[in-house]
Design a protein around this nucleic acid. Structure first.
Length: 437
RNA sequence: CGGGGAGUGGCGCAGUCUGGUAGCGCACCUGCUUUGGGAGCAGGGGGUCGGAGGUUCGAAUCCUCUCUCCCCGACCA
């Protein structure tokens, strides 16, 4: 992509409304544009990152045995009356009337909808287990949206729902998602710690929040400091196997959100306890028969009995993760994207567009980089070198290749790693080899 | 929802107290000079001051109502 043609409205100054660093950087990098409180337009650069995150989330869901579906954003109030949540949910749910004055709502979550799908289709234990997921926009009319996309009212969420014949099978489904989440966050370059959490309005007795530690986190969290040394799961797990050991390992150390944390009952010594703020990026629940009973989702077991299906639901805040990754990875100059979610792997800077030899070399490198399959953003604008460097640092692509007259004379170009800041003068061929290694 | 703050070219702000018909920096356009970490000079385009009503000869400025956004708190993926 040529920057001269790309829609990426960056700015030097930060809009006054943005306070936290991820929000400021997303606005400055031209990733998003606010539409109204807690609702954002996603511009090309921001959308690319969100799509990358979405794809990683999707891949790990599929690996763990979930199947993708897509449910509507607008739901009928009748379903929610069945579960009893139409009255329970409160003002956070955006309620709408259609032209026939029917009560509708913009879904804040989809347990009712999925249960409705399930009860119309699944009648036998032979059809279980099932795990269905979607990546869809949700709306929760937060009293006070803030922190940019990390606490918006409209947000993209991966939510899925497991269906099992009994609690033992249900717990395996829960564990599978637990492990899939560890994998997902590790691939995103995040250290997410599973913490015992309240099940909240969704209900149930088994629930973990996945928390990324960050100063700007929305909630106070407490955990054993050894979690910092835990490694994410590099290899895909065998989801058919017993996953309890992995779950046990990750829950062996103390970790709790503030509402579950009792300083007096805390088993940790002061020097073991890490207290700080965290961003909730995922939340998993096993809630058994809460919805299946109220909404009549029953199957026949091998003995011919009608039994309510055992359910769990699992969420990952996809749009929120864009902000969370930036919170976890940035410096004074701007964003530092982990390669897995970077909008482009490489930025090429033509430092002197007027210089024929420089432009020829830059164009040639751009062509070769694309031919090699690299995702490239090519700054071919007639700007000054300093402005290009600053902007490239701001948008945080993992690698930068600077091509200018100085290097051309020496037969080299400069390649820089955004994360380490390390710069090297090498030949174009060597740079390509390094980037495609 | 309680408390606080702010709405003035695309962005950041001054002007409002002490009414007189809108200004600065950045960005943008043109030209010249510059050119490896957000250049300099010169020229130029763009706003009627969130909205409605009122006071006044005259309102960005005073009064009333209203909308929006932000911050702190309680609540949330």
């Amino acid at each position: 992509m040529r920057l001269s043609q790309y829609f990426m409205p960056t700015r030097k100054e930060t809009p006054a409304e943005a306070q936290v660093v991820s929000h400021r950087l997303m606005l400055r990098a031209g990733m998003i544009h606010q539409a109204s409180a807690g609702i954002y337009n996603w511009l090309p650069l921001g959308l690319r990152v969100m799509k990358k995150i979405e794809e990683i989330v999707r891949q790990e869901q599929v690996l763990a045995g979930a199947q993708e579906i897509l449910m509507p954003t607008i739901q009928s109030a009748d379903l929610w009356r069945e579960s009893g949540r139409y009255d329970e949910y409160g003002a956070e749910m955006l309620r709408i009337k259609d032209r026939h004055q029917r009560d509708m709502l913009y879904g804040p979550t989809n347990e009712e909808q999925i249960t409705d799908i399930f009860r119309h289709s699944i009648k036998s234990y032979r059809d279980l287990p099932k795990n269905l997921f979607q990546i869809q926009w949700k709306f929760r009319d937060e009293i006070r949206p803030r922190f940019g996309v990390m606490r918006g009212r409209e947000f993209l969420m991966k939510d899925n729902y497991s269906f099992d014949i009994d609690e033992v099978a249900g717990r395996h489904s829960y564990n599978a998602m637990f492990v899939a989440y560890l994998r997902t966050f590790a691939r995103l370059g995040l250290k997410a710690i599973p913490m015992a959490a309240d099940a909240g309005p969704i209900g149930g007795d088994l629930s973990h929040e996945f928390i990324v530690l960050a100063e700007t986190g929305e909630s106070e969290v407490h955990c054993h400091k050894d979690f910092l040394d835990f490694d994410g799961l590099a290899e895909p797990a065998d989801y058919a196997a017993n996953l309890q050991p992995i779950v046990d390992h990750w829950t062996s150390l103390y970790a709790a959100t503030d509402d579950k944390h009792d300083p007096d009952a805390c088993p940790l010594n002061e020097d073991e306890l890490l207290s700080g703020r965290g961003i909730e990026v995922g939340h998993i629940f096993f809630f058994g028969t809460k919805y299946s009973e109220s909404m009549g989702a029953y199957v026949q077991d091998p003995e011919g009995n009608q039994v309510p299906v055992q359910m769990g639901s699992y969420g990952i805040g996809v749009s929120r993760l864009v902000g969370a990754v930036i919170e976890a990875s940035h410096d004074q100059a701007g964003i530092i994207w982990p390669e897995a979610v970077a909008p482009f792997k490489l930025g090429i800077l033509n430092l002197r567009v007027e210089d024929q030899a420089t432009t020829a070399a830059a164009e040639d490198f751009y062509k070769k980089a694309r031919a090699a399959g690299l995702e490239v953003l090519f700054d071919d604008r007639p700007e000054r070198a300093g402005a290009k460097f600053a902007e490239m640092d701001l948008i945080g692509l993992p690698w930068q290749v600077a091509i200018g007259p100085r290097g051309i004379k020496a037969g080299t170009i400069e390649i820089k790693n955004r994360a380490t800041g390390q710069r090297e003068e090498v030949s174009a061929e060597a740079a390509l080899d390094l980037l495609t290694a």
